[in-house]
């Protein structure tokens, strides 16, 4: 047997063509770029939107004053904040108007359910504390909410509580939601290590020292500091009324230039 014979043997081997085509097709399928599953999602948006609308309307039909536009979901806005429930109470000496937001169409149902439950409980607790009159019960109490930012990536929900007894107080709270990943953005999540707390504190105190309006330096910036991320992708720290400035100034929102904290950021996914 010569090498030439060997070659003939080689070229005459049976080729399992069908299996061969199958394994190559398998490889092609296994490595196919993931298609965006827009179709089922778009269609489910319509379904969820319709259910949410019916639900919300049913809960709110007794309140004729509610702004109708707040209740009608716009289907093309994937995530929308609806009015879930409004607690209203008016008598001779007191006034309450507590609006409870309802997040709809968030891709992650678990997250939206969790947040909605928390908002609902908070609203009910506020109302109950108001109705359960004691000497400390304020004269008036309102809670409103707004979509501060609602873009491709983020939804920032602002809740504002105005309480007046002898004095008035305003409390602002923000929930920054990553719509794509279905999670609530927290301040520590943005940074590599705790060093950001000192950096933010120093920056804030510099601004306070430089400004005539602000008068009280902050002692520390903690992980629970109120904040949100604005449409430009900048970090905004919010200080409650009276926290760093005299009461008459109101709440202060301080935008932190990204350069100041760039070295501490884990990524530029949220803060750009």
């Amino acid at each position: 047997m010569t090498l030439a014979d060997l070659k003939i043997q080689y070229t005459q081997q049976d080729i399992p063509t069908e299996k061969l085509t199958a394994v190559i097709n398998q490889a092609i399928v296994a490595t196919a770029p993931k298609r965006k599953r827009l179709n089922w999602w778009q269609s489910s948006v319509i379904g969820v939107g319709a259910v949410a609308a019916a639900f919300t309307l049913a809960l709110n039909t007794s309140y004729s004053f509610a702004n109708a536009s707040e209740r009608v979901p716009v289907v093309r806005d994937a995530v929308k904040v609806l009015l879930f429930r409004e607690y209203k109470h008016v008598d001779k000496t007191s006034y309450a108007d507590i609006k409870v937001p309802l997040l709809t169409n968030l891709r992650d149902r678990q997250l939206s359910d969790k947040l909605n439950t928390a908002y609902a409980e908070e609203g009910r607790a506020l109302y109950e504390s108001f109705m359960n009159k004691t000497n400390d019960t304020p004269k008036s109490m309102t809670q409103t909410y707004a979509e501060k930012v609602n873009n491709e990536q983020l939804l920032v929900l602002e809740r504002r509580q105005d309480i007046s007894s002898a004095d008035t107080a305003t409390k602002l709270r923000y929930t920054t939601i990553d719509k794509q990943n279905g999670l609530v953005v927290t301040l520590p999540m943005l940074f590599k290590a705790n060093a950001y707390q000192a950096i933010l504190k120093n920056y804030v105190n510099e601004q306070i020292a430089a400004s005539k309006q602000y008068d009280t330096p902050v002692a520390a910036i903690g992980p629970k500091q109120t904040f949100y991320i604005n449409n430009k992708g900048e970090l905004v720290l919010v200080f409650q009324r009276g926290e760093i400035a005299p009461m008459y100034v109101g709440a202060v929102a301080m935008t932190i230039p990204t350069d100041e904290i760039d070295s501490q950021l884990i990524s530029h996914a949220y803060v750009k």
């Binding site: 399992p16 299996k19 061969l20 394994v23 190559i24 398998q26 490889a27 092609i28 296994a30 490595t31």
Partner: peptide, 13 residues
């Protein structure tokens, strides 16, 4: 056939 498939996947990735 395994070798062909693994190679094809590696190449495609």
């Amino acid at each position: 056939l395994d070798i062909v498939q693994i190679s094809a996947e590696k190449a495609l990735r």
